[in-house]
Write a protein that binds this DNA or RNA. Structure first.
Length: 904
DNA sequence: AATGCCACGTA
DNA sequence: CGTACGTGGCATTC
């Protein structure tokens, strides 16, 4: 095995106190010019200065381990220097706006890190640093001054080191007395003498012409210091001596100006600069807003109060592969949380598993793992594995326990005792992320490259194990899962997501696994018949369409359709899209009412039939040999907390049209079961809106038992409920639902095909009657803007950094998301709780009936003989009591042999 | 073969 | 100029 390597920290870890002082502007400015302005958030906010600054600060905190930290900023344009010499810094270009805009962001970062930022009107940052450096040195501290201003070099002593940026902001030179002497050939305290002679272009301080650092150093060494030199300037001969005499006044002025003040009065004393733990919540908020990815984690990793993982990021981990049997490994690590990695295929009902890796987390760079092949397991080994996997008291960390469940199920292995699912945890922390690939998360949170461990040829492995050994990758993943669990732990608490993980998502994943494995019975003959019938409709409508235009085109090609509609038939143009003009159903319908062109009718019929046909085809392909269809419920996709359904999607089976609804007749109760039962929440989102807004009118609407839209309509139109026409009801219904999506008056007018003015009036009337709703909706956006996130009734957060975007479109999009996320997300929370309650009740009553599907506000259950009443009762109970709102949760239940018939 | 876009199904 | 998804077909790109 390869030898153990440890990555040493560069900090020496001395006892005593170490004060880190940073010149904020100077370092930020360095970062600004060192990093490309392509570093920006998606909304266009350039972040190169703030990113570079934060990155530098992170490195300093990590490498120097200071006990005290402060950052100083310049404040005010007028300083004693400009008053003394108007031309001071006069040649500097105006600060670029792109830089200036980032300074407040840097302050926000500092605030989140609880690093004091100091400034004083009329005083430059360097003077503040000089003052603090003096105080620190006098207090016996080791002082580090980080500044890109060479004037700071005068502060260097055996106690004070200047960290001067060498390249960008990531490489800093340690300017000790010896280093200053080496570089400038004068002692640090003489450096300002030298600078006075040489001049400083950036400060607009001219030096003595013809005198560079070399000559200046020689003079200073020769005469001792600048004062002596100027006193005895007549001793100098030649051109340079003449030049000095000519510019002596300027040199004196330079020296006066480059002397740093060491007695500035400051609001904070040294003791106030002691490092404090980060405001982790704020770190997340700022990182979200600035879209810090890896930097967020690097920041959190250096939190002085942070719960650091055993292995510091990037540390090498040595994994020992146990070659003994499973039982002895398990015995050796009893009671510890074990990482589990299963290799195989995770398809519900069609899964497979061939290898299982178990591992401890890494501890001081050491981890232990055992890998077993499921194919060649002897009886005793298999029994050890089986009982450990099924042991609810044996704590396990898994990345995606539901997938592992399906793989293990293929070998009749049951999985219990998952106490941490890193995939679900990552989802709760970053719900807007695209994916939660283990290797990506490990790279981001542990700074460890799992992909590199895959490659045996790779020289520098982060994970040191015999990469050629079978199962080494699996072992590496299993170790990483445990370490990742540790790393995600604090973030989970920071976001208040602990209970969501422990009490909702993790238990739910077990429920979902069972639902997926169960599947829903389908009538393939019926589906086959539907396919033929829809195919017939497609053929007929296509033929009729071709007949009208006199040629055959691909009706499924928007491009060819545009040609036919807008060129050949010269119809009025529709709404513009990227590739021309839309041919969507609403526009075609609109064109049809205007032109009554028969082609449009045939085209629309063709669209409908073609869509239904492909839906049926997809379902047919998804039927398993036992006649059931098994979807996968994705639990980490929807940023609001909803589930989604794939392979196939059973959450978008048609219901609105009669033809579409027929597809639901293909989903039927299975052999040995009595009936399908569907239970859905009625108007759950509106009820949540009533609850969250506390609007008395809306709450009363639900308590009255009156039809919601009729009730609301009577208030909006100021008529008796009985006098609400169906047209009025439709308008109010569209508006009520639209509100939860951030619908505009224009959007409402489009949907209802009424003038914008009328739509606006409708909304105004609505808000007059239901002012609490308006206040809630504006309040929820305001709060999200302030906190950076929205929250559901269970505290599920969605971070929306774009709420503060300068880009109007992005900002408004974020605002609509902020309106909708608490409502949609709370509904998701509620049905998730209901599912847990339903499954629990089924188990507790030892019923055979089983949950099959969830469609956002609906559950489908397959009812075993004789359990119909019990199941209906428990569905009503559990769904109705999932949470306590200020309005009742209404549940309606239907039953039938097919999903179609069970619907209502 | 992979990707982007359009269109459309659900809540 | 209405949120959240997944899928399939077409067209374009590699």
């Amino acid at each position: 095995m390869a030898p153990v390597t440890t990555s040493a920290r560069t900090g020496t870890g001395t006892q005593g106190t170490r004060l880190l002082l940073i010149d904020g502007h100077s370092m930020a400015y360095r970062a600004f010019y060192a990093l490309p302005d392509t570093l920006a958030t998606s909304s266009g906010q350039v972040t190169n200065a703030v990113y570079g600054f934060a990155s530098m600060l992170t490195n300093l905190l990590r490498d120097e381990q200071p006990t005290h930290v402060a950052v100083a900023f310049d404040a005010g344009r007028v300083t004693f220097r400009t008053e003394r010499y108007a031309e001071y810094k006069a040649t500097r270009d105006a600060t670029p706006e792109v830089f200036r805009g980032q300074v407040p962001l840097i302050r926000e970062v500092l605030e989140a890190l609880r690093v004091p930022a100091l400034q004083r009107e009329g005083i430059e940052a360097d003077d503040i640093l000089a003052t603090l450096a003096r105080q620190g040195a006098e207090a016996g501290m080791e002082v580090l001054v980080c500044s890109g201003d060479r004037d700071a070099l005068q502060l260097v002593t055996d106690r004070v080191t200047v960290l001067y940026p060498k390249k960008g902001v990531s490489e800093l030179s340690r300017m000790t007395p010896a280093a200053v002497e080496e570089k400038y050939k004068v002692a640090p305290e003489r450096y300002p003498d030298l600078a006075a002679l040489v001049g400083e272009t950036s400060d607009n301080l001219p030096g003595v012409p013809g005198v560079g650092p070399g000559v200046a150093a020689k003079w200073i060494t020769q005469f001792g210091d600048l004062d002596s030199l100027l006193e005895r300037q007549d001793e100098l001969t030649g051109k340079r001596g003449e030049a000095l005499r000519e510019h002596a006044a300027q040199v004196r002025l330079n020296r006066e100006l480059n002397a740093l003040l060491t007695d500035v009065e400051l609001p904070l004393g040294i003791d106030d600069l002691a490092v404090a733990g980060f405001d982790r919540e704020a770190v997340h908020r700022v990182s979200d807003a600035l879209q810090f990815g890896a930097l967020r984690d690097r920041l959190l990793a250096v939190d002085p109060a942070g719960h650091e993982a055993d292995a510091a990021p990037g540390d090498a981990v040595r994994v020992t592969l146990h070659d003994g049997d499973l039982a002895s490994w398990l015995a050796a690590h009893a009671g510890r949380r074990v990482g589990l990695d299963v290799s195989g295929v995770a398809r519900p009902g069609l899964g497979d598993a061939w290898q299982v890796a178990l591992a401890t987390g890494s501890d001081a760079g050491e981890a232990s793992a055992v890998v077993v092949d499921l194919a060649d397991l002897d009886g005793a080994q298999e029994e050890s594995l089986r009982s450990w996997l099924a042991d609810a008291a044996a704590p396990k960390a898994v990345h995606g326990a539901k997938s592992a469940w399906h793989m293990l199920a293929s070998r009749d292995l049951d999985l219990h005792g998952v106490t941490f699912d890193t995939e679900l945890a990552a989802y709760l922390c970053y719900p807007d992320q695209r994916g939660y690939d283990l290797a990506d998360l490990v790279l981001r949170h542990l700074g460890r490259d799992l992909a590199a461990a895959d490659d045996a040829a790779q020289g520098a492995l982060d994970l040191e194990l015999d990469a050629a050994a079978p199962g080494s990758e699996a072992a590496a993943r299993a170790v990483a899962v445990v370490d990742l669990a540790e790393a995600l732990d604090p973030g989970l608490d920071d976001r208040g997501a602990r209970s969501l993980l422990d009490d909702v998502e993790m238990p739910l994943s077990a429920v979902l696994a069972r639902m997926e494995a169960t599947g829903i019975a389908t009538d393939t003959d019926f589906l086959g018949g539907l396919e033929a019938s829809f195919a017939q409709a497609v053929a007929t409508s296509a033929a009729e369409a071709y007949d009208v235009i006199g040629r055959e085109v691909n009706l499924g090609s928007p491009k060819q359709l545009q040609e036919v509609l807008f060129d050949q038939l010269a119809m009025p143009r529709t709404k513009k899209i990227k590739t021309g003009y839309t041919t969507d159903a609403a526009s075609l319908q609109d064109l049809f009412t205007r032109t009554e062109h028969p082609f449009l009718a045939h085209l629309l019929a063709h669209r409908d039939a073609a869509k239904l046909r492909t839906t049926v085809e997809g379902l047919l392909k998804a039927v398993h040999p036992d006649g059931r269809i098994r979807t996968t419920f994705q639990q980490t996709i929807a940023a609001t907390g909803r589930l989604s359904s794939t392979d196939p999607n059973l959450q978008n089976i048609p219901i609105r049209t009669e033809a579409g609804r027929r597809i639901r007749q293909a989903f039927r109760v299975g052999e040995g079961y009595d009936v399908l039962l569907t239970a859905d929440y009625s108007q759950i989102e509106m009820r949540i809106m009533a609850h969250l807004s506390g609007d008395e009118g809306l709450i009363e609407a639900f308590r009255s038992g009156e039809d919601l839209h009729r009730y609301v309509g009577s208030r909006v139109f100021d008529v008796d409920p009985a006098a609400v026409t169906s047209e009025m009801r439709a308008k109010v219904k569209a508006m009520s639902y639209g509100l939860a999506y951030g619908l505009s008056a224009y959007g409402l007018s489009q949907q209802l095909t009424i003038p914008t003015g009328e739509a606006q009036a409708l909304m105004d009337d609505y808000f007059t009657r239901f002012g609490g709703v308006r206040d809630y909706l504006t309040g929820v956006v305001e709060e999200a803007r302030a906190t950076g996130y929205t929250a559901t009734i269970l505290g599920r957060r969605r971070y929306l950094p774009d709420l503060t975007s300068d880009n109007r479109q992005r900002r408004q999009m974020a605002e609509r998301m902020a309106l909708n996320a608490p409502i949609q997300g709370s509904a998701a929370d509620i049905i998730k709780l209901a599912m847990l309650g339903v499954q629990h009740a089924i188990d507790a009553q030892e019923l055979r009936s089983r949950l099959l599907l969830q469609v956002h506000d609906e559950l489908v259950v397959e009812v075993a003989p004789g359990e119909r009443d019990a199941v209906e009762a428990l569905l009503r109970d559990q769904m109705g009591a999932a949470v306590r709102l200020d309005v009742p949760l209404d549940v309606s239940v239907g039953s039938g042999t097919t999903w179609h018939d069970a619907g209502h």
